[in-house]
């Protein structure tokens, strides 16, 4: 992932996984209502939030994401009945684990957005970008290699 914008500034990159049935439609609703968000995010559409297995999140961080946002249907509304409950447990455990890896838990957020909640989508995206902007880039690529004295 290239973190430089056209002007060579270091800008945040957020990967936002949105489930097809609620949150992606919510993002769409934000678009059709012409709601403004900060531009530093890329949406990846998945069938369900539970499709976003933690190894995809690890991979996103490894490749340079400053933050990862997962959006799914509200509890009780998952198109596959209870995928989002599993997502919830996994993300809680992953956040705890990421802290041990020196990755601030604020860089990983799970939230719920329904198909009609365009404004909620915009707010969550903006909040996540702001939180991550404060933390700065992860810069994992270099420290993963051997560091000589």
């Amino acid at each position: 992932m290239n973190n430089d914008d056209n002007y060579g500034n270091n800008v945040p990159q957020i990967v936002a996984f949105c489930c097809n049935w609620c949150s992606y439609a919510g993002a769409d609703a934000a678009g059709t209502s012409r709601l403004q968000t900060k531009p530093h995010f890329r949406i990846i559409r998945t069938m369900c939030s539970s499709r976003v297995e933690p190894d995809l999140i690890m991979e996103a961080f490894r490749k340079g994401a400053w933050g990862v946002l997962i959006l799914g249907c509200h509890p009780g509304d998952c198109h596959y009945k209870n995928g989002n409950y599993k997502t919830d447990r996994r993300i809680r455990l992953l956040r705890k684990t990421l802290a041990q890896f020196g990755i601030e838990p604020e860089r990983l957020r799970l939230d719920w957005v329904s198909a009609s909640e365009g404004a909620r989508f915009t707010r969550i995206v903006d909040e996540t970008i702001e939180a991550v902007q404060k933390l700065g880039p992860l810069n994992l690529a270099v420290p993963c290699e051997v560091i000589h004295e």
Partner: peptide, 16 residues
């Protein structure tokens, strides 16, 4: 990460 995923999925799965 794989084990983390499966353990988290199994916690309270019947009463989630």
């Amino acid at each position: 990460t794989k084990v983390l995923t499966s353990i988290a999925s199994l916690i309270g799965i019947e009463t989630e």
